[in-house]
Design a protein around this nucleic acid. Sequence first.
DNA 1: AAGTACACCTGTGTGC
DNA 2: TGCACACAGGTGTACT
Length: 283
Amino acid sequence: MPELPEVETVRCGLLPAMEGAVIARAQVNRPDLRWPFPEHMAERLTGQRVNALRRRSKYILADLASDETLIIHLGMSGRMLISGDPLGQFHHDHPAPEKHDHVVLDMENGARVTFNDARRFGAMDLTPTKAVEQHWLIRDLGPEPLGNDFHEDYLKERLNGRNTPMKSALLDQKIIAGLGNIYVCEALFRAGVSPKRKAGKLSAARVGALVPVIRQVLRDAIEAGGSSLKDYRQAHGELGYFQHSFDVYDREGEACKSPDCDATIKRIVQSGRSSFYCPKCQR
DNA sequence: AAGTACACCTGTGTGC
DNA sequence: TGCACACAGGTGTACT
Protein backbone atom coordinates (compact mmCIF):
# COMPACT_ATOMS: atom_id res chain seq x y z
CA MET A 1 0.00 0.00 0.00
CA PRO A 2 1.90 2.81 1.38
CA GLU A 3 4.55 5.19 0.25
CA LEU A 4 5.51 8.31 2.15
CA PRO A 5 2.28 10.26 1.48
CA GLU A 6 0.08 7.35 2.58
CA VAL A 7 2.13 6.77 5.73
CA GLU A 8 2.02 10.46 6.58
CA THR A 9 -1.75 10.48 6.05
CA VAL A 10 -2.15 7.47 8.34
CA ARG A 11 0.07 9.08 10.98
CA CYS A 12 -1.96 12.28 10.96
CA GLY A 13 -5.16 10.29 11.25
CA LEU A 14 -3.81 8.40 14.24
CA LEU A 15 -2.62 11.50 16.09
CA PRO A 16 -5.88 12.44 17.85
CA ALA A 17 -6.41 8.86 19.02
CA MET A 18 -2.84 8.05 20.02
CA GLU A 19 -0.63 11.02 20.78
CA GLY A 20 -0.64 11.71 24.48
CA ALA A 21 -2.94 8.74 25.02
CA VAL A 22 -2.31 5.60 27.06
CA ILE A 23 -2.44 2.08 25.66
CA ALA A 24 -4.84 0.26 27.98
CA ARG A 25 -4.53 -3.12 26.32
CA ALA A 26 -2.47 -4.60 23.47
CA GLN A 27 -3.75 -7.69 21.74
CA VAL A 28 -1.22 -9.53 19.57
CA ASN A 29 -2.87 -12.24 17.50
CA ARG A 30 0.14 -13.92 15.91
CA PRO A 31 3.86 -14.20 16.62
CA ASP A 32 5.13 -12.31 13.62
CA LEU A 33 4.57 -10.30 10.50
CA ARG A 34 7.54 -10.20 8.15
CA TRP A 35 9.74 -10.84 11.20
CA PRO A 36 8.92 -12.05 14.70
CA PHE A 37 7.47 -9.40 16.96
CA PRO A 38 9.82 -8.28 19.74
CA GLU A 39 9.83 -10.29 22.95
CA HIS A 40 6.82 -9.62 25.18
CA MET A 41 5.53 -6.91 22.85
CA ALA A 42 2.02 -6.84 24.33
CA GLU A 43 3.36 -6.43 27.87
CA ARG A 44 5.81 -3.74 26.83
CA LEU A 45 3.02 -1.74 25.17
CA THR A 46 0.39 -2.14 27.86
CA GLY A 47 0.04 0.88 30.15
CA GLN A 48 2.40 3.03 28.09
CA ARG A 49 1.60 6.60 27.18
CA VAL A 50 2.43 7.54 23.58
CA ASN A 51 4.48 10.69 23.98
CA ALA A 52 4.82 11.35 20.26
CA LEU A 53 3.82 9.80 16.96
CA ARG A 54 6.48 10.54 14.37
CA ARG A 55 7.37 9.39 10.87
CA ARG A 56 10.70 8.52 9.28
CA SER A 57 10.42 7.61 5.61
CA LYS A 58 7.71 4.93 5.44
CA TYR A 59 8.01 4.08 9.14
CA ILE A 60 5.66 5.29 11.86
CA LEU A 61 7.45 5.80 15.18
CA ALA A 62 5.51 5.80 18.43
CA ASP A 63 7.63 7.12 21.31
CA LEU A 64 6.49 5.53 24.56
CA ALA A 65 6.79 6.75 28.15
CA SER A 66 9.04 3.75 28.83
CA ASP A 67 11.67 5.36 26.57
CA GLU A 68 11.08 2.67 23.99
CA THR A 69 9.84 3.44 20.49
CA LEU A 70 7.42 1.23 18.59
CA ILE A 71 8.58 1.08 14.97
CA ILE A 72 5.77 0.29 12.54
CA HIS A 73 6.04 -0.50 8.83
CA LEU A 74 2.97 -1.15 6.72
CA GLY A 75 4.64 -3.21 3.99
CA MET A 76 2.49 -3.52 0.88
CA SER A 77 -0.94 -4.13 2.38
CA GLY A 78 -0.75 -2.91 5.97
CA ARG A 79 -3.46 -0.63 7.34
CA MET A 80 -4.05 1.04 10.67
CA LEU A 81 -7.70 1.74 11.30
CA ILE A 82 -9.27 3.62 14.17
CA SER A 83 -12.62 2.68 15.58
CA GLY A 84 -14.50 3.89 18.59
CA ASP A 85 -14.53 7.39 19.93
CA PRO A 86 -11.18 8.95 20.82
CA LEU A 87 -12.91 11.46 23.08
CA GLY A 88 -14.71 8.75 24.97
CA GLN A 89 -17.90 10.78 25.02
CA PHE A 90 -20.30 8.82 22.89
CA HIS A 91 -19.66 5.14 22.48
CA HIS A 92 -16.99 2.52 22.81
CA ASP A 93 -18.26 -0.12 20.44
CA HIS A 94 -16.09 -1.46 17.67
CA PRO A 95 -16.73 -3.34 14.43
CA ALA A 96 -16.31 -7.11 14.42
CA PRO A 97 -12.70 -8.29 14.03
CA GLU A 98 -11.69 -8.99 10.46
CA LYS A 99 -9.36 -11.47 8.87
CA HIS A 100 -5.72 -10.32 9.16
CA ASP A 101 -6.31 -8.08 12.18
CA HIS A 102 -2.92 -8.89 13.70
CA VAL A 103 -2.46 -6.27 16.43
CA VAL A 104 -5.19 -4.38 18.29
CA LEU A 105 -4.41 -1.45 20.58
CA ASP A 106 -7.19 -0.32 22.91
CA MET A 107 -6.50 3.17 24.17
CA GLU A 108 -7.70 4.44 27.54
CA ASN A 109 -9.54 7.20 25.69
CA GLY A 110 -11.85 4.64 24.08
CA ALA A 111 -10.25 4.56 20.66
CA ARG A 112 -9.15 1.25 19.15
CA VAL A 113 -6.30 1.09 16.66
CA THR A 114 -6.23 -2.06 14.55
CA PHE A 115 -3.26 -3.14 12.45
CA ASN A 116 -4.52 -5.25 9.54
CA ASP A 117 -2.10 -6.67 6.99
CA ALA A 118 -3.17 -9.41 4.57
CA ARG A 119 0.22 -10.02 2.98
CA ARG A 120 2.20 -9.64 6.21
CA PHE A 121 5.09 -7.76 4.64
CA GLY A 122 4.65 -5.24 7.43
CA ALA A 123 6.72 -5.14 10.59
CA MET A 124 6.80 -3.97 14.19
CA ASP A 125 9.72 -3.67 16.52
CA LEU A 126 10.57 -2.01 19.83
CA THR A 127 13.86 -0.21 20.39
CA PRO A 128 15.19 2.39 22.84
CA THR A 129 14.00 5.82 21.72
CA LYS A 130 17.47 7.29 21.87
CA ALA A 131 18.73 4.55 19.51
CA VAL A 132 16.00 4.70 16.87
CA GLU A 133 18.33 6.27 14.30
CA GLN A 134 20.73 3.36 14.78
CA HIS A 135 18.06 0.69 14.40
CA TRP A 136 18.91 -1.66 11.53
CA LEU A 137 15.72 -0.78 9.64
CA ILE A 138 16.36 2.96 9.95
CA ARG A 139 20.10 3.54 9.96
CA ASP A 140 20.81 3.22 6.23
CA LEU A 141 17.87 5.32 5.03
CA GLY A 142 18.68 8.34 2.89
CA PRO A 143 17.38 11.82 3.64
CA GLU A 144 13.73 12.74 3.93
CA PRO A 145 12.68 14.14 0.54
CA LEU A 146 10.73 16.94 2.24
CA GLY A 147 13.58 17.80 4.59
CA ASN A 148 16.57 20.11 4.30
CA ASP A 149 19.11 17.35 3.73
CA PHE A 150 17.60 16.50 0.36
CA HIS A 151 18.88 19.04 -2.13
CA GLU A 152 20.40 19.41 -5.56
CA ASP A 153 24.04 18.95 -4.57
CA TYR A 154 23.21 15.87 -2.52
CA LEU A 155 21.29 14.17 -5.32
CA LYS A 156 23.95 14.98 -7.90
CA GLU A 157 26.58 13.43 -5.69
CA ARG A 158 24.56 10.28 -5.08
CA LEU A 159 23.65 9.74 -8.74
CA ASN A 160 27.11 10.53 -10.03
CA GLY A 161 28.73 7.55 -11.73
CA ARG A 162 25.74 5.27 -11.19
CA ASN A 163 24.90 2.98 -14.05
CA THR A 164 21.48 1.99 -12.73
CA PRO A 165 18.29 3.36 -14.34
CA MET A 166 16.69 6.44 -12.76
CA LYS A 167 13.70 4.31 -11.79
CA SER A 168 15.87 2.04 -9.66
CA ALA A 169 17.91 4.93 -8.25
CA LEU A 170 14.85 6.77 -6.96
CA LEU A 171 13.38 3.56 -5.52
CA ASP A 172 16.63 3.04 -3.58
CA GLN A 173 15.79 4.02 0.00
CA LYS A 174 19.47 4.60 0.73
CA ILE A 175 19.53 7.44 -1.80
CA ILE A 176 16.15 8.97 -0.95
CA ALA A 177 13.79 7.62 1.68
CA GLY A 178 10.07 7.37 1.15
CA LEU A 179 9.43 7.12 -2.56
CA GLY A 180 7.82 3.96 -3.95
CA ASN A 181 6.65 2.76 -7.31
CA ILE A 182 3.82 5.26 -7.76
CA TYR A 183 5.61 8.45 -6.82
CA VAL A 184 8.81 7.59 -8.66
CA CYS A 185 6.77 7.13 -11.85
CA GLU A 186 4.87 10.36 -11.25
CA ALA A 187 7.95 12.41 -10.38
CA LEU A 188 9.87 11.18 -13.42
CA PHE A 189 6.96 12.13 -15.66
CA ARG A 190 6.67 15.61 -14.18
CA ALA A 191 10.43 16.09 -14.62
CA GLY A 192 10.40 14.74 -18.18
CA VAL A 193 12.97 12.08 -17.30
CA SER A 194 12.79 8.57 -18.73
CA PRO A 195 12.74 5.81 -16.12
CA LYS A 196 15.36 4.08 -18.29
CA ARG A 197 17.80 7.00 -18.19
CA LYS A 198 21.05 5.95 -16.53
CA ALA A 199 21.31 7.81 -13.24
CA GLY A 200 24.89 8.91 -13.79
CA LYS A 201 24.11 10.30 -17.23
CA LEU A 202 21.39 12.77 -16.28
CA SER A 203 22.65 16.33 -16.70
CA ALA A 204 23.26 18.41 -13.59
CA ALA A 205 20.49 20.79 -14.62
CA ARG A 206 17.98 17.96 -14.93
CA VAL A 207 19.00 16.45 -11.59
CA GLY A 208 18.47 19.87 -10.09
CA ALA A 209 15.03 20.13 -11.64
CA LEU A 210 14.07 16.76 -10.21
CA VAL A 211 14.45 17.85 -6.60
CA PRO A 212 11.55 20.35 -6.42
CA VAL A 213 9.44 18.04 -8.60
CA ILE A 214 9.83 15.15 -6.15
CA ARG A 215 8.94 17.44 -3.28
CA GLN A 216 5.86 18.78 -5.04
CA VAL A 217 4.53 15.36 -6.04
CA LEU A 218 4.75 14.23 -2.43
CA ARG A 219 3.14 17.41 -1.11
CA ASP A 220 0.32 17.12 -3.62
CA ALA A 221 -0.26 13.50 -2.64
CA ILE A 222 -0.23 14.23 1.10
CA GLU A 223 -2.69 17.04 0.54
CA ALA A 224 -4.98 14.58 -1.27
CA GLY A 225 -4.77 12.05 1.55
CA GLY A 226 -2.57 9.66 -0.42
CA SER A 227 -3.61 7.24 -3.17
CA SER A 228 -6.23 4.53 -2.75
CA LEU A 229 -5.76 1.73 -5.27
CA LYS A 230 -7.14 -1.49 -3.89
CA ASP A 231 -7.39 -1.49 -0.15
CA TYR A 232 -5.63 1.58 1.18
CA ARG A 233 -7.64 3.55 3.69
CA GLN A 234 -6.85 6.50 5.86
CA ALA A 235 -6.95 5.88 9.59
CA HIS A 236 -10.65 6.63 9.73
CA GLY A 237 -11.45 4.53 6.69
CA GLU A 238 -11.68 7.34 4.14
CA LEU A 239 -10.20 6.87 0.70
CA GLY A 240 -7.32 9.03 -0.43
CA TYR A 241 -7.93 10.60 -3.79
CA PHE A 242 -4.53 11.29 -5.32
CA GLN A 243 -5.09 8.32 -7.67
CA HIS A 244 -7.35 10.63 -9.67
CA SER A 245 -4.34 12.86 -10.23
CA PHE A 246 -2.01 10.20 -11.65
CA ASP A 247 -0.34 11.34 -14.86
CA VAL A 248 1.13 7.93 -15.72
CA TYR A 249 0.80 5.34 -12.96
CA ASP A 250 -1.54 2.49 -13.97
CA ARG A 251 -2.45 4.38 -17.17
CA GLU A 252 -0.92 2.00 -19.73
CA GLY A 253 -2.41 2.62 -23.17
CA GLU A 254 -4.16 5.83 -22.12
CA ALA A 255 -3.41 9.25 -23.56
CA CYS A 256 -0.51 11.30 -22.27
CA LYS A 257 -1.87 14.22 -20.27
CA SER A 258 0.70 16.66 -21.56
CA PRO A 259 -1.24 19.27 -23.62
CA ASP A 260 0.71 19.00 -26.87
CA CYS A 261 1.47 15.29 -26.73
CA ASP A 262 -0.39 12.65 -28.74
CA ALA A 263 1.48 9.68 -27.35
CA THR A 264 0.08 6.93 -25.12
CA ILE A 265 1.47 5.84 -21.79
CA LYS A 266 3.75 2.80 -21.91
CA ARG A 267 4.37 0.15 -19.28
CA ILE A 268 7.70 -1.61 -18.99
CA VAL A 269 9.13 -3.86 -16.28
CA GLN A 270 12.26 -2.72 -14.49
CA SER A 271 13.78 -4.89 -11.79
CA GLY A 272 10.54 -6.79 -11.57
CA ARG A 273 8.29 -3.76 -11.15
CA SER A 274 6.06 -1.86 -13.54
CA SER A 275 7.22 1.52 -14.79
CA PHE A 276 4.71 3.77 -16.50
CA TYR A 277 5.92 6.63 -18.66
CA CYS A 278 5.33 8.71 -21.78
CA PRO A 279 7.89 7.78 -24.42
CA LYS A 280 7.60 11.22 -26.04
CA CYS A 281 7.70 13.48 -22.99
CA GLN A 282 10.26 11.56 -20.97
CA ARG A 283 13.86 11.39 -22.15
C1' DA B 1 30.78 -2.15 -4.88
C1' DA B 2 27.05 -2.12 -7.93
C1' DG B 3 23.43 -4.17 -10.16
C1' DT B 4 19.89 -7.73 -10.44
C1' DA B 5 16.84 -11.74 -9.33
C1' DC B 6 14.30 -13.79 -5.96
C1' DA B 7 12.00 -14.34 -1.75
C1' DC B 8 8.27 -13.49 1.54
C1' DC B 9 2.31 -13.75 1.45
C1' DT B 10 -2.59 -13.06 0.29
C1' DG B 11 -6.06 -11.23 -2.66
C1' DT B 12 -8.00 -9.87 -7.04
C1' DG B 13 -8.74 -9.66 -11.84
C1' DT B 14 -8.47 -11.90 -16.43
C1' DG B 15 -8.78 -15.39 -19.81
C1' DC B 16 -9.95 -20.05 -20.98
C1' DT C 1 -18.01 -22.33 -11.87
C1' DG C 2 -13.29 -23.67 -11.67
C1' DC C 3 -8.69 -23.13 -12.60
C1' DA C 4 -4.12 -21.11 -13.96
C1' DC C 5 -1.73 -17.15 -14.20
C1' DA C 6 -0.27 -12.29 -13.77
C1' DC C 7 0.01 -8.71 -10.87
C1' DA C 8 -0.17 -5.60 -6.60
C1' DG C 9 1.67 0.49 -2.90
C1' DG C 10 8.04 -2.97 -0.09
C1' DT C 11 12.47 -4.43 0.85
C1' DG C 12 16.09 -7.83 2.78
C1' DT C 13 19.02 -11.38 1.02
C1' DA C 14 21.71 -13.83 -2.07
C1' DC C 15 23.56 -14.09 -6.21
C1' DT C 16 26.79 -12.33 -10.52
